Computed example of a mutant assay.
Amino acid sequence: MTLHREGFGTIALALVFLLLLNLGVEYLTPELNWLHTLLLVVSAVFFFIIVQFFRYPKRRPTLNPKQVIAPCDGKVVVIEEVVETEYFKGPRRQISIFMSPVNVHVNWNPVAGIVSYFRYHPGKYLVAWHPKSSTENERTTTVIRMQNGVEILFRQIAGALARRIKWYVSEGQQVGQASEMGFIKFGSRVDVYVPLDAEIKVNLNDLTTGSITVLAELKS
């Protein structure tokens, strides 16, 4: 299993903390062997959960210039027409994917093109499925202009547990479809905004696989 580079520091800190905790408890309570065993088992399970969160699977991505692919693993929780107020300032179709702590948390670019807009917004840490999380939580907004001129906007949104968003794009950068865009730690959400005439290929509650699942097919 390959681990994402964002996890190296967290995994090391968790390992040191658990080792010190187990050694400290054993030193303070040398006669309680049952407690030492229980703590060791709980520590191993906790460490495994931390490690699996940062897994980085190898995948064969979907590459199609007329399709918008899922930027992350998760569950489709919103498909609706909205007014996007930050960049387009007009109607778009929003597709939102909720990422639970057990999902892979790598983020991929949904289309290929030039990053025409990028902003980081500090904010709150409402639960990721809260209706206001898209506009009030810590988040990034990225817009990619495709070769045909169509622009796709997507947002990384921090949740109640996810308090660190990482991104690897900047304005003016050329990006490939399914190339790595960023990472969000410990539960979060990604919103994707597509043109109203795009054909939506997913349904509510569908599970998505980042870089593979097709969210929408563009008309132009």
Results as ranks from 00 to 15, higher is better:
residue 1 M to A: 15
residue 3 L to P: 06
residue 4 H to P: 10
residue 4 H to K: 05
residue 5 R to S: 14
residue 5 R to V: 12
residue 7 G to W: 14
residue 8 F to L: 10
residue 10 T to L: 07
residue 11 I to C: 08
residue 11 I to S: 07
residue 11 I to Y: 10
residue 12 A to N: 11
residue 18 L to N: 10
residue 24 G to W: 06
residue 24 G to M: 09
residue 25 V to G: 05
residue 26 E to D: 12
residue 27 Y to Q: 09
residue 30 P to N: 07
residue 30 P to Q: 05
residue 32 L to K: 13
residue 33 N to A: 11
residue 33 N to R: 13
residue 40 L to H: 07
residue 43 S to H: 01
residue 52 Q to Y: 13
residue 54 F to Q: 07
residue 55 R to Q: 14
residue 56 Y to A: 15
residue 57 P to H: 11
residue 57 P to A: 13
residue 58 K to G: 12
residue 61 P to Q: 10
residue 63 L to D: 10
residue 63 L to G: 03
residue 67 Q to C: 09
residue 71 P to Q: 09
residue 71 P to A: 11
residue 72 C to F: 07
residue 77 V to C: 14
residue 79 I to D: 02
residue 82 V to T: 12
residue 82 V to P: 08
residue 83 V to R: 13
residue 83 V to C: 10
residue 84 E to C: 09
residue 85 T to F: 10
residue 88 F to T: 11
residue 94 Q to C: 09
residue 97 I to H: 01
residue 97 I to V: 15
residue 98 F to Y: 15
residue 98 F to A: 11
residue 100 S to F: 05
residue 100 S to H: 10
residue 102 V to G: 00
residue 104 V to Q: 04
residue 105 H to D: 05
residue 108 W to T: 02
residue 108 W to S: 01
residue 108 W to K: 03
residue 109 N to S: 03
residue 109 N to V: 01
residue 110 P to N: 04
residue 111 V to H: 00
residue 112 A to P: 03
residue 114 I to F: 04
residue 117 Y to C: 02
residue 118 F to G: 02
residue 118 F to S: 01
residue 119 R to Q: 14
residue 121 H to W: 12
residue 122 P to D: 05
residue 124 K to N: 12
residue 124 K to L: 14
residue 127 V to I: 10
residue 128 A to G: 04
residue 130 H to K: 08
residue 131 P to Q: 10
residue 133 S to N: 08
residue 133 S to G: 06
residue 133 S to F: 05
residue 134 S to Y: 08
residue 138 E to M: 07
residue 139 R to Q: 04
residue 141 T to F: 05
residue 141 T to D: 06
residue 143 V to T: 06
residue 143 V to Q: 07
residue 149 G to Q: 05
residue 151 E to P: 04
residue 151 E to I: 02
residue 152 I to S: 02
residue 153 L to G: 02
residue 153 L to Y: 03
residue 156 Q to W: 11
residue 158 A to T: 06
residue 158 A to P: 09
residue 159 G to R: 02
residue 161 L to Y: 07
residue 161 L to A: 12
residue 163 R to D: 05
residue 168 Y to G: 01
residue 168 Y to E: 12
residue 169 V to W: 09
residue 170 S to T: 09
residue 171 E to Y: 02
residue 171 E to R: 07
residue 172 G to F: 08
residue 173 Q to M: 15
residue 175 V to D: 04
residue 178 A to K: 07
residue 179 S to I: 03
residue 185 K to E: 12
residue 188 S to Q: 04
residue 190 V to Y: 00
residue 192 V to A: 00
residue 192 V to D: 00
residue 192 V to G: 00
residue 193 Y to D: 02
residue 193 Y to W: 05
residue 193 Y to R: 00
residue 194 V to T: 00
residue 196 L to Q: 05
residue 197 D to R: 08
residue 199 E to R: 12
residue 202 V to K: 02
residue 202 V to L: 03
residue 203 N to F: 01
residue 204 L to S: 02
residue 206 D to L: 00
residue 207 L to Q: 09
residue 209 T to W: 07
residue 209 T to L: 14
residue 210 G to E: 03
residue 211 S to Y: 09
residue 213 T to C: 00
residue 215 L to I: 01
residue 216 A to M: 01
